[in-house]
Structures are given as structure tokens and as C-alpha cells.
Amino acid sequence: MKNLFLTIVFSVIIINIGFAQGKYFTRTGHISFFSEAALENIDAHNNQGTCILDSESGELALSVLIKGFEFEKALMQEHFNENYLESHKFPKSTFKGKITNLDDVNFDGNGKYNVKFEGDLTIHGETNAVSSAGILEVADNTINASASFPVTVKDYKIKIPKTVIDNIAKVVEVKVELKLEPYKR
């Protein structure tokens, strides 16, 4: 009876640890975007992206503060927050989705894997389905993930006035680079 009790206790502990270990996390994800237009290029970077990846289910979530994007020109940054992304109303941008070819990835051994993912991207309070491909590199229990995908500005109801139509691209390339580490509760 005592043995049974211990077995159950241990299995409970193991199940719990097992679940915690199945997740990978970062709060210093690098998210950038690049807009190429006739009059100027705009390049913005954010190093405070948070991401969590569940290696068991392939589910992943990403969240980034709009105010954390840094631009080379101060006024661009102000207008980005104030006029375009309206960060006072929509402070965060999120992605929630899953890796669709999870069987191709071995999280226990080192290696580099091409992955496909799909999910819902929310920017400026608008949600759209996106799917794209990226790379997962497993190295000693950390995961380097990178992906890029195009974002059509109009799909997220971000209004660009006619006067600056030559300054801002209609489709912006978004890049994500993450170094995920085992998630500890």
C-alpha cells in the first residue's frame, strides 16, 4: 500500500514536470519589420517579444508590445504609435497558432528543421489567419526559431493617408527571431 502511494505521488510529480518541460519560452524575442516604398524605407525592431511554444502539441503563442518598436527616426516612432497602430487603443500584437508538421521535429536531439505553421495574427485589433514557414533549430535543449511572413497593412485596418502613400509599403515584411528556453513555472 505504501509502495502504491509513493508510485502515485511520483507519477504525479513526473507528469507535472513533464508538462512544464514540454514548453519553451522567451521574453527577449526579436521582432522586426521592413517597409520598402518609393520615398523611404522603414525599418523597426523590437527585442521584447514574448513567445511560448508547447512541443507536445505544437501550439505556440507570441505577444509583443507595439510601443517597444524602435525606429531610426524618432518621428516615425511617434507616428507609428499615435497615428497608425494606435497603441493607446491596441497596445499589443499577438499570434496564436500551431506547427502543422510537428512530427518532423525531434525536440530531444540537436538538429535543424523546416517547419510550417498557421494561426491567427492580431494587429491593430484586427485578426487574420496567416500561414508560413520557418526554421527550428534545437541545440542543447534551447530552440532557435526564425520565420518571416508578409503583412498586408490594409487587412489590419491601418489607414495610410494619400499624402504619405509613397512613404509606406502596402505589404510589410515581418521577421521573427526567437531563442526559446525550457519554460520553468
Partner: peptide, 28 residues
């Protein structure tokens, strides 16, 4: 044991149902 199992089970459930975005929200 019954109580323990019950606790474990609910714990297990809460893990399985946890929304990853909510988890991020808590973390930040």
C-alpha cells in the same frame, strides 16, 4: 489517495486547457 488523485486530475486538466496567450499575459 482519492483526494490526491482528484487534485492531480484537476491540475492536469488546468494544464491541458491552459491558453498559451493567457500564460504569456501572466508572464509579462
Amino acid at each position: 489517495l482519492t483526494v490526491l488523485l482528484a487534485i492531480t486530475f484537476t491540475h492536469f486538466q488546468s494544464y491541458a486547457q491552459e491558453d498559451l496567450l493567457e500564460l504569456l499575459e501572466e508572464e509579462t
